[in-house]
């Protein structure tokens, strides 16, 4: 279980402190698939980062009783000078898992072939996403954070991601940020809509999507 209690998050900006999250209360249980909707800059990714522990909440508490992944397909942890293989080794080392077991899977899933032995710096963004996703799948978590992951990659790769994530790991908890209608509808059973720094909860996709559409129609100022 992951429990957020009265979580707020502020950032200093040139025009003073900006409050992005205004008192979020949220509980995610094992196996739940939670979809997050909201406008650009509403705080979707901030919430994901606070839950993942990449950022600390300004006030409030985050309790994690499940292991939580890093944001899926996120490529920032890669070192551009290191090869794909070396980056995989690094992840295996910090998570204390055996490298040889994972290598075969990453080779097979990423289909990067000889490029795995080249520095990540020469990869295209699509290749990088393939590597990142493949590496993400080598560590087992109770809860996966998925922040607009499927935006990259070609169709065949996306399809394989879907199988790997939503079929093989359907029993895991997931937190999915996406603007894609199709994507959220089929996979999530809870929906959160960001409005003015707080979240509204919905069980039904069509309902949340109507609200989301209405929200988009309103003029937005940052």
């Amino acid at each position: 279980m992951i429990r957020l209690t009265d979580v707020t998050k502020q950032y200093p900006t040139n025009s003073g402190m900006r409050t992005i999250l205004k008192g979020i209360n949220l509980t995610i249980r094992r196996g739940e698939h939670v979809g997050i909707l909201g406008r650009n800059g509403a705080g979707k990714s901030t919430l994901v980062r606070v839950i993942g522990g990449a950022e600390q909440a300004t006030t409030g508490t985050v309790e994690r009783e499940m292991s939580v992944s890093w944001p899926l397909a996120f490529t920032g942890g890669f070192h551009a000078k290191l090869t794909g293989i070396d980056n995989l080794r690094f992840i295996c080392r910090i998570y204390g898992v055996d490298f040889q077991d994972r290598l075969a899977f990453v080779k097979d899933f990423s289909e990067l072939g000889a490029y795995l032995y080249e520095p990540v710096g020469v990869y295209s963004s699509g290749m990088r996403a393939r590597l990142a996703f493949a590496i993400s799948m080598t560590i087992d978590f109770d809860c996966y954070l998925i922040d607009e992951v499927m935006a990259v990659g070609d169709d065949s790769f996306r399809e394989r991601c879907k199988v790997e994530l939503f079929e093989k790991r359907a029993d895991k908890a997931m937190l999915i940020v996406s603007h894609s209608h199709r994507y959220l509808k089929g996979t999530c059973n809870r929906f959160l809509l960001f409005r003015n720094g707080t979240i509204e909860e919905y069980d039904d996709f069509d309902e949340v999507y109507d609200q989301y559409k209405a929200l988009l129609a309103e003029p937005q100022t940052f």
Partner: peptide, 14 residues
């Protein structure tokens, strides 16, 4: 090919 999963304890940093 199925990915081998690690027992959750190993994914718990603490």
């Amino acid at each position: 090919m199925p990915s081998k999963l690690v027992e959750p304890a190993q994914a718990t940093p603490s």
